[in-house]
Design a protein around this nucleic acid. Structure first.
Lengths: 244, 244
DNA sequence: TGAATATTTGGACGATAGTACAAATATGGT
DNA sequence: ACCATATTTGTACTATCGTCCAAATATTCA
């Protein structure tokens, strides 16, 4: 780990946060997830992970062979549950009658699992999404393939669902706006302090629920915006007209 | 550099892309900017930079003392011109009469310099913004201070200007939406291929101008959305009413 | 229990990291 | 041309990297 706020004297508490079973494999996995999602893949060494998990560096190699293998296993653990939950919520959202409510439900179905996805660890979804954000920024080659073949299907399903609710907007624009949504989501999880710093001393800003609501509200409005080939002015942006 | 697509047989052309003067300091700076913004700070070694610039590793130490110092100098080079250009465009945007047009001009004043900021190198703005995106994801400590004391002023100025155009929306919501804008902007520059992959084989997707227009359109709509403490339905989202 | 297996340990390997420094070379003013 | 200075070079230092491996230990099951 290149540089990190002084913490060499604190005990490794990542293991304690887990289920406390003497399952080293799980402890290593949890520690790696926490460290990767905080400092990035390149900045964290295998020895850092081992120490945080209370394990020997050799154990990491034993269980996961390589550092890349460790990262791969983390993704395998989360991608399944997260996409499954997204599919469930998306299916439920599709059944919403009111067009406005349906669009909002679709967006929520995409955002929610990123914060609360199914891991036995507390705050698991947030941590994994933060990890994905960092990995996409670092351009990690190992991850790029998993993303392409795991998340693109999900993304297509959501774009399709949105396109059904907003048929008058070209797919290209919806793809862009979905792209912006993902960027906003990532950035929100990567820099949790920035919002509270720009706001004038309001709440602590770490309220995930509030962040989700703000993100959903903004995204729904962005999706409903008139496409680029239409003039912005007049009543074009009014959902009342746009969704008729 | 940890892992990178095979390129060891190609000559270092970063220097050739610069002004070709035998100014090693500039060549090193350009090479570092290119490599950092592509692979991240931790993944690039001083030796990588030196080789790409056609210089000796010792020269890097001579000119910039440390690796952090090199990163710092890159920021010093760009922050000034970029924020100056933003201030100019913001001042011009404030003078726009029509409230709708003014809001769009303000957003454009924020986004444009991120793509075209003043560097003598071609495509300079895009590269530096990509660098900022990666740095914010990696949580680099050296950069965090610069960001806080350099960009927060600019951010406040823009939030204020937006608040003047949308006085009925609480500042907190506008801060969130500006935050989302920055995240969308970063993510767009970090993953330039993703949009074209999700679109169905349309244009090449690397058209910066189109990306800007999509981003501005979506952001303006998001900013105009009714705040969280108001119901979303009815005519609340209509700009015609909202801006009255 | 005892043997087979699974896991953990501690140390080692070569590679590469950031940085330092003396010697070599280029540069510019007089 | 000469000297003072600026820059480049080559090398070396220590630290840490990912990975490997044999020995020690823990676990499992007949």
């Amino acid at each position: 780990m290149v540089r990190k706020p002084a913490k060499s004297h604190v005990k490794p508490d990542v293991k304690a946060a887990s289920t406390r079973k003497p399952n080293m494999r799980e402890a290593i996995l949890a520690a790696a997830e926490e460290l990767f999602s905080t400092y990035g893949f390149n900045a964290v060494s295998v020895r850092d992970i081992a120490q945080a998990a209370g394990a020997n560096p050799g154990s990491v190699t034993y269980h996961f062979k390589t550092k890349d293998g460790l990262l791969l296993e983390i993704y395998r653990r989360h991608c399944g549950p997260m996409n499954r939950r997204r599919s469930e919520l998306l299916a439920a959202a599709r059944r919403v009658r009111d067009l406005q409510d349906r669009l909002e439900a679709i967006v929520r179905a995409y955002v929610l699992p990123a914060f609360t996805s199914g891991s036995d660890l507390a705050g698991g979804g947030t941590r994994f999404t933060r990890l994905r954000a960092i990995m996409s920024a670092e351009g990690n080659e190992v991850v790029r393939k998993i993303i392409a073949q795991t998340f693109d299907d999900t993304s297509h399903a959501f774009i399709d669902a949105i396109h059904e609710s907003l048929p008058h907007i070209p797919r290209t624009d919806l793809v862009w706006r979905g792209h912006f949504l993902l960027g906003a989501l990532y950035y929100t999880l990567v820099t949790p302090e920035r919002v509270s710093r720009l706001s004038r001393g309001s709440a602590d800003g770490t309220d995930a629920g509030h962040a989700i609501e703000e993100l959903v509200r903004a995204t729904v409005a962005a999706l409903q915006a008139p496409p680029l080939d239409q003039p912005r002015k007049a009543a074009g942006a009014s959902p009342g007209r746009a969704l008729t």
